[in-house]
Amino acid sequence: MTNTTKSSGKSYKKEMPILWWTRRTSHIIFVMRELTSLGVAYFAIILLLLIGAISQGEESYYEFIKLMKSPILIWLSIISLLGLIFHSVTWFNLAPKAMVVKFGKYRIPGIVIMLSNYAGWIVISIIVGRFLLY
């Protein structure tokens, strides 16, 4: 089916400002959520550097630990951790929107999926912590 209506060619279109997302709180929160990916990447690289340091021997391992204590890296760690936690929370909260899990005919409610995400988070954190430290 086609549509014949012609445009008068004089319609008005408002441009979006470059920093459009600063006008609404919900959009600022959205952009912050998206920027958590920087925290994710940052910490992935830290992990990689840590492994590199470990594989190069004891000295470079302690060197790395020392480096992590420098004020700049402390601050980066704090900021990236906040980002990571915000990432985890938003991710777990939104996951039920994308995932529809059915048990036979019964559709598992979103809240159950969300809560099981959090449960998984806690369990994994405990396992990883124990594994790393003991």
Partner: peptide, 18 residues
């Protein structure tokens, strides 16, 4: 918002139908 304005409060929504 986000649509061309034909006049006053009337927007052009042909894009949606396409």
């Amino acid at each position: 918002e986000n649509f061309p304005v034909v006049r006053d409060l009337v927007i052009d929504m042909r894009d949606f139908l396409e």
